[in-house]
Amino acid sequence: MKHLLSTADLDVADAVRILDTAGSMAATQAREIKKLPTLRGRTVVNLFFEDSTRTRISFETAAKRLSADVINFSAKGSSVSKGESLKDTALTLQAMGADAVVIRHHASGAPHTLATSGWTHGAVINAGDGMHQHPTQALLDAYTLRRHLAGPGDVTGRDLTGLRIAIVGDVLHSRVARSNVHLLHTLGAEVVLVAPPTLLPVGVGAWPARVSYHLDEVLADEKPDAIMMLRVQRERMSSAGGGFFPSPLEYTRRYGLDARRLALLPEHAIVLHPGPMNRGLEISADAADSTRAVIVEQVANGVAVRMAVLYLLLAGGDAPARAAAPTDDMKVDA
């Protein structure tokens, strides 16, 4: 694995290895001194063409805990908005000696272009591209699901076989949904997508997932082990925004997760949301703040998963499997 561009590129062994490595990383994070010397002297660039403070901070924290040097490059708001700037920016970063480029871009495929263009020799990590992919989000979701649902006992080495996951909301515009569908399928879970027909892409029939237009039916019939609520942008309602649904109220009524629907879930089921949440639209305060919700934990797991990805791409070398072994070669930097 030279880059992390899409969860579709991961086989089950790759995915489990990343989750196991994340588990090791999380264990180190419980210690008093969290910093590991692993990537000392390596440079990680956060190249963000689109605002996302949460994702940037998560990657930055992960890189710093591995002792990497971090450069934050925000192209948002500057005059660069055209593709030429992707090339020029990449060449600049290459000149600075970037070992890894974490890229967030509004255009689907931009990380792929960066990785295959020869503009940079470093590892490319996709931190979200357009409507395409956000692989570390899916990995942290899978990590969270595995921690809660793949037990009992030590979940190391396990996949998600047999779990039923409902992904609810704006699938059409969601890179989180696309990443999760591939990864969850690879890990053996069953995925059902729940959305109004307007918010499902033409061609969704080819995805390894089932589709439903009715949340209540899915809750009653499928008894999902977890429900993942996707962010819905209010502006998608307007005519200029595409007119995808009649009103926020109707959306909430048909697809929102509230206390009543929460009560329909099985006892053990958990609630995920990639954030930031639109409280009152796709998720009510009751649901978001319930004990079932693991939304805050997802954020913490995000750091561990991103540490694992950086570690495997930059220090894993040719033997990433061995690298997954817990912390023998990851002595705490005292």
Binding site: H132, P201, V202, G203
Partner: peptide, 18 residues
């Protein structure tokens, strides 16, 4: 629109040209 709307555009996350 960026490409033909269908199975491939759904996967690539590119806006479809139906």
């Amino acid at each position: 629109a960026q490409m033909h709307e269908g199975v491939v555009s759904a996967e690539l996350g590119l806006a479809g040209w139906p």
